[in-house]
Amino acid sequence: MDLTRWLRWETGLTALAVAMFIVMARLSPDFATTFTLQSLALNAAVIGFLAIGVAPVIMGGDIDISIAAMTALCGVISAVLWTHGVNIWVASVVGLMVGAVLGLVNGLSVVLLDLPPLAVTLGTMGAYTGVGFLILGGSAISNFPASLVNLGSGFIGVTPIPISSVVLIGVTALLAILMHRTTFGRTVFAVGSNRQASRFSGLAVVRTRIMAFVICGVLAAVASIFYLGYFNTAQAGSASEDLLPAITVVLLGGVSAYGGTGTILGVFVALVVVSVLESGLGVMGLSGQELSIAVGILLIVAVASSVGGRWLRGREGSGPELAPPPAGPGPAESSPQR
């Protein structure tokens, strides 16, 4: 089936991850230590949840740039509930429901009103951040219960493996099954490839697209729980710096920006690549923004090499589908942009 095609991009990416790890370990003795790797894993959790969450949306041909704002708002709501005496876990579950609602709002606006997802989620990003500020103002809530902090920064028993990594891997596996082994997942890919044809084929286009946004919202809420646990603080402006890395990870992972191709595994491997790169360069002394240069270059190189690879192979090869779909009738169907 398409398995061979997918596997080639992910294989290359895995090779890149391994190579990068080796290079970083060679370049800096501090890199391959337990401490560094643990920090790497803990930091990667929030971005990981965001990336895994937004991947289905992008695979379905849409996009959601409000994910960081959803994370912040869910965190704020959970935290505020907790300060009013609600048990932190109950508050977290409420946060999950809030995430679902926020995702639903996105989905309804984009799908039912037939509006460009970029514009809509740009608006909801501002709206959600704004609501967060309305609730909390500029202040922050900190000092969460030890149980939550342990979830976000703690380890499994006496092993050096962080809890958040295990949960991330579990969620990744779940979503991989959802996207690659269920009808829902296949519908998402079909819709992402050709929405019009999917509609004519009788697929549940509307329902599927909206569901993708809801999943994205829920996973953003999951990210917020681990954000609270790791950073131990809730603010209206949280996680705003995680939007770019999350999208980068998804696109690097082989998910086409136009939708229709990509794998969850690829996204996960891309997360590893970006985390290793950031962590390694960070250990070598580069600052946060300097890291972003590296990530940007990495993105270009990755996409360019896939294009180059396809060109070498005479256009039949693997890699994320980057050419815009043939122009269909109407802007809503054929746009290579959102």
Binding site: A257, G296, L299, I300, V303, A304, V307, P336
Partner: peptide, 14 residues
């Protein structure tokens, strides 16, 4: 390089 504009400008933004 035929990159989608979102990706390309995301990269250059970084």
């Amino acid at each position: 390089l035929r990159m989608p504009a979102i990706i390309a400008t995301l990269a250059t933004l970084s």
